[in-house]
Amino acid sequence: MANYSTNEFKSGLKVMLEGDPCSILENEYVKPGKGQAFNRVKLRNLNTGRVWERTFKSGESLEGADVMEYDMEYLYTDGEFWHFMSTDGSFEQHAADEKAVGETVKWLKEQETYAVTLFNGSPISVTPPNFIVLEVTETDPGLKGDTAQGGSKPATLTTGAMVRVPLFVNIGDNLKIDTRTGDYVSRA
């Protein structure tokens, strides 16, 4: 991979830092009227999701990271890996481990499309679409006619995710969920 100088740092650039692939979030140029210039950089460690703050001498370089994001369809899990297939027509398949899938495991639905980040060809993270439709498998019986606001109850979805839903929701209903917050949006 190419090296990138601090002059080329911008939001979204992927670089290697302390052995981990990182995505640059912010790059602030700091320069006193007299004296040396520095770049104060915020990076997200793509392996851990943690945000790092580091300062570099202006002009210093970091190695680029071979990180690409692809749209992939979720196929199935064999218990150890979760299998995805590229939607770009190549039908290329990739197996993501538990660490890469992380919290997204509770939003995984067959035939749905996810953003899969590959580092050196292997998945390191899987991001769900912002909204996803899932079926209710378990919840207390719905109160007929109670469509007014006020009151909620827990419901379990096909993926195993637990969400708070209004009292009128029944087993078998399809619900639209915001995956960023885990909140119920509407019946689908």
Binding site: G35, F38, E53, T55, F56, K57
Partner: peptide, 16 residues
């Protein structure tokens, strides 16, 4: 600041 400071001289450290 998290900088690799081994090759910074006195003025460099002070500037930073």
């Amino acid at each position: 600041t998290g900088i690799t400071a081994d090759d910074l001289d006195r003025d460099g450290c002070c500037d930073l």
